Computed example of a mutant assay.
Amino acid sequence: MPNKINPILTAELWTLLQKEQYVTLCTIDNETYGPYVSAISWLYAPDETTILFAVDNRSRIIKNIKENPLVSFTLIANESTYSINGSASIAMEKIEGVPLKLALINVKVNEVRDVMFYGARMSVEPAYEKVYDLEAAAKLDLAVMEAMKRSLV
């Protein structure tokens, strides 16, 4: 049975991407031209066709996107695994109002696939916890999410 393919985020996935969410991001390495996978969590989907994310502006992710804009997110949710493919661009080299030097990346969603293998479901979704000052982490997370939302105005 083929997996369903959508050109936009489903309502369920869009809802998940209204807050910080653990995903892996795959870009094409600008030196080796092989896959480059990173775990990120500062994402926000303003609509069903767009995903914004923030990363350190010195990250290899930025160099990779400048060389090749194709990206793929892997998201584990709703008892399944999803591949969200799109084309990325650097929206801001430095997000204002955030204490870190973060870049804002805009991804135009091209395809959303349920890639869970047949006859299985995810019984537990990934979970993570911050291991540094929890108050500082919460303050930073809020500042980054608010800055991403402000960037749309």
Rank of each mutant, 00 (worst) to 15 (best):
V109Y: 06
M92V: 02
Y22G: 06
S87H: 12
T27L: 10
T50N: 06
A54L: 04
E111M: 03
E146A: 10
L104H: 08
V107N: 00
I95N: 00
G119H: 06
G97F: 10
E12S: 14
M116R: 13
I40L: 15
T32I: 02
V71Q: 11
N64V: 06
L25I: 07
M148S: 03
A103T: 07
A138L: 10
I65T: 08
F117V: 14
D56C: 04
Y132L: 06
E79Y: 15
Q21F: 02
V124I: 12
T10F: 12
E48N: 02
N30R: 07
V98D: 08
A143V: 03
T81S: 12
Y82A: 01
T49D: 13
N3V: 14
V115G: 07
Q18C: 01
A77N: 09
Y33C: 10
V23I: 10
I105H: 03
N64T: 03
R121F: 14
N85H: 11
S83P: 01
R113N: 13
E96S: 08
I65E: 03
A54W: 00
P126T: 07
I5Y: 00
D29Q: 09
P99V: 08
N57S: 09
P46T: 05
L75F: 04
K66I: 07
A147M: 06
S89R: 15
L142M: 09
L25G: 07
S80I: 02
G86L: 13
T15F: 02
T15I: 01
C26K: 15
I51T: 05
K108A: 03
T15C: 05
N85V: 08
N64H: 00
A54V: 01
V131I: 13
